[in-house]
C-alpha cells in the first residue's frame, strides 16, 4: 500500500492549534530526544572506529541508524508522557462541550495536549513500518492492540477505545474531538472488535460502533451515533443498510457482485428520502410539533439567563 505524498504520509494528531507560547514544548521535546542519539553515536564511534580499517564501523552503521531512530522516538515518547502527566495533573482531561476560546481552560489544555503529542506521533508516522504507530497510540492512552491497522488513517490520540482486528481504511478520520462553529466537542469514541471502517469514512466524536460492524467507504457518522452490532452502515450521515453476513464460513463462491448499479443507487436514495415521521397519524404529528416547540422554548429559557 502506498501513501500519497501530498498527504505528507497521512496521519498526525489532527487539529493542532499552534500557539506561540507552546513552541517551548516543541523545542524542549526535539532537543531532549536528539541528545541520546548523539550519545549513542559517540559511543559507537569510540567503540568501533578505526581510521586504518573501518570495516566493522561501516558494516554495522545502518543498523545503528535504525536503532538511533527507534531511540529518538522512544525518548520523545517518554518525555512527552512525563510532560503530559504534569499537564494532566494541573487539569484533568474531560469530555464535554467547551467554548473554542482561549479563556476556556479545557480548550487551552486540549490544544496543549495535542501540541505535546505531535512531535512523537509525527516521528513515528515518518517511520515506514507500522508498529511504532501502535506503540505511540498505546503510550498516549488510546486502547488498541497490535492487531489493529491504524496506519493509513487519521486517528485522534485520546478518548478512543479500539477492540481487536479493527481495520481503518485509507484516509479515514476517527475523531474524539471536533470543532463546530465556536464550540469544541470532546466525547469518547468506542470501536469494538472486528470493525471495518471504509476508505474516506469519517467517525465523529461519541460514536459507538458495535462488534463486526462495517462503516462503508465515504460515509460519515454523526456526533454520538450508535452503530449496532453486526450491521453494515452506509451514507452521509450513515444509516443501517443490511446485516453483515460476511463473517460466516464458506462464502467464497456465494459472494457476488452487483449487476444493476442504477437500481442499487435508487435503493440507497430511498433510505434517505424516507422520513421517520412518514407513517404518523395526524394526531401524532400535532403532538410531535408540540414537543418540538416545547423543546425550543426550554432551549430559549436556558439561553436567557
Amino acid at each position: 500500500m502506498s501513501v500519497p505524498t501530498s498527504m505528507r504520509v497521512g496521519p498526525f494528531t489532527p487539529t493542532v492549534l499552534v500557539k506561540k507560547r507552546y513552541l517551548l514544548f516543541y523545542i524542549f521535546l526535539i532537543w531532549i530526544s536528539i541528545i541520546p542519539i548523539l550519545l549513542e553515536f559517540w559511543f559507537y564511534w569510540q567503540w568501533l572506529y578505526d581510521p586504518v580499517r573501518p570495516v566493522h564501523f561501516y558494516i554495522f552503521l545502518p543498523l545503528l541508524f535504525f536503532l538511533m531512530y527507534l531511540t529518538m522516538v522512544f525518548t520523545a515518547l517518554l518525555f512527552a508522557k512525563i510532560l503530559l502527566g504534569i499537564v494532566n495533573a494541573f487539569h484533568k482531561p474531560k469530555e464535554g462541550v467547551f467554548l473554542r476560546d482561549l479563556s476556556d481552560k479545557d480548550y487551552r489544555y486540549w490544544s496543549l495536549r495535542n501540541t505535546i503529542k505531535r512531535w512523537p506521533v509525527w516521528l513515528s508516522h515518518k517511520f515506514p513500518f507500522p508498529f511504532l504507530d501502535n506503540v505511540c497510540f498505546k503510550a498516549f492512552g488510546v486502547k488498541t492492540t497490535f492487531t489493529n491497522s491504524l496506519f493509513e488513517g487519521w486517528v485522534d490520540c485520546e478518548f478512543i477505545e479500539f477492540g481487536k482486528n479493527v481495520v481503518v481504511g485509507q484516509g479515514s478520520i476517527i475523531q474524539s474531538a471536533v470543532i463546530v462553529g465556536n464550540l469544541l466537542i470532546i466525547r469518547k469514541t468506542i470501536i469494538e472488535d472486528d470493525v471495518r471502517i471504509g476508505a474516506h469514512a469519517v467517525v465523529m466524536p461519541g460514536t459507538h460502533i458495535g462488534k463486526r460492524s462495517v462503516l462503508a467507504a465515504n460515509s460519515v457518522t454523526i456526533v454520538g451515533q450508535e452503530l449496532e452490532e453486526g450491521y453494515i452502515y452506509v451514507g452521509i450521515p450513515s444509516k443501517k443498510y443490511k446485516k453483515n453476513r460476511f463473517f460466516e464460513d464458506g462464502l467464497e463462491k456465494v459472494l457476488g457482485h452487483v449487476k444493476d448499479v442504477e437500481g442499487l443507487r435508487q435503493k440507497y436514495e430511498e433510505m434517505y428520502i424516507k422520513r421517520h415521521d412518514d407513517h404518523l397519524s395526524i394526531k401524532e404529528r400535532i403532538e410531535h410539533r408540540k414537543e418540538i416547540k416545547e423543546e425550543e422554548k426550554r432551549f430559549m429559557e436556558q439561553q436567557e439567563p
Binding site: M1, P130, F131, N134, F146, T147, S149, F151, E152, G153, V167, V168, G169, Q170, S172, R196, I197, G198, A199, V214, A216, A217, N218, I232, V234, K240, Y241, K242, K243, R245, F246, L251, V254, L255, G256, H257, V258, L264, K267, M271, K274
Partner: peptide, 25 residues
C-alpha cells in the same frame, strides 16, 4: 431498520465499498 431487516434475509451481494488498508503489525 425494520424495512431493511425483513428485506435482506439472505443478501450476500457486495453492494458497498470498504477498504483494503491492512498494515498489520
Amino acid at each position: 431498520a425494520v424495512h431493511n431487516e425483513s428485506k435482506d434475509e439472505i443478501d450476500y451481494a457486495l453492494d458497498f465499498t470498504t477498504s483494503s488498508a491492512i498494515s498489520r503489525v
